[in-house]
């Protein structure tokens, strides 16, 4: 009895480790696609019903932190869109005449502190932290730090698809002139 339980626990732990590893590899692969500007391939990992949301963050009085990040339900955010607009962004970059990305920026995603929550059905909640570095033209530099809250969904073809992504950027006034790439 005791031995069986230990085996069961070991198996659970192993599954958990495999899942963690699997998701970390997925996020690294995704970052590679973005950094190498393989946007059309990246779109294959985006679920058709994705909600891609980047709230604005307010300075609020202590005790009002519940309204620090803008709501996708009724407020203005930096980005709040679905796959149709993400496809539009990729199409626009791929014209070669989208001047704020022509020549293309150099973007690097560092993704870390990946927390994988217990799967629910075919979906799993994942939190990660990012440092995104953008360098463009000769000396233009932007640095973005923040947290991503994802829902990943199992997919028979691609392994995982991103079903929801909330990008919590650690800025109030946006210190970059524009956002022309993906987090």
């Amino acid at each position: 009895m005791t031995t069986d339980m230990t085996v069961e626990t070991m198996q659970q732990m192993l599954e958990r480790l495999m899942l963690q590893r699997d998701i970390e590899e997925f996020l690294s692969m995704e970052a590679e696609l973005l950094d190498e500007r393989r946007y059309d391939e990246w779109l294959e990992y985006i679920a058709d019903d994705i909600h891609y949301h980047m709230p604005i963050r307010r300075n609020v009085r202590f005790g009002e932190q519940y309204r620090e990040n803008t709501s996708a339900d009724s407020e203005i955010s930096w980005i709040d869109e679905g796959k149709r607009v993400l496809i539009g962004r990729v199409r626009q970059i791929n014209t070669g005449i989208h001047w704020c990305e022509e020549p293309l920026s150099r973007v690097r995603h560092v993704i870390s502190n990946v927390q994988v929550y217990d799967p629910e059905g075919d979906e799993v909640k994942v939190r990660s932290r990012f440092i995104v570095y953008r360098n463009r033209m000769e000396d233009e530099v932007d640095l973005f730090a923040g947290k991503r809250e994802d829902i990943l969904r199992r997919d028979s073809v691609t392994g995982w698809k991103i079903a929801k992504r909330t990008i919590v950027l650690d800025q109030n006034v946006l210190l970059a002139k524009n956002i022309t790439f993906f987090f």
């Binding site: 869109e81 989208h98 704020c100 524009n178 956002i179």
Partner: peptide
């Protein structure tokens, strides 16, 4: 408005560059 305007809007981003 969010996809059209502002720093992440698809239209205005090119103005900023120029």
């Amino acid at each position: 408005m969010m996809r059209y305007c502002g720093p992440a809007g698809l239209t205005e981003s090119d103005d900023m560059e120029n």
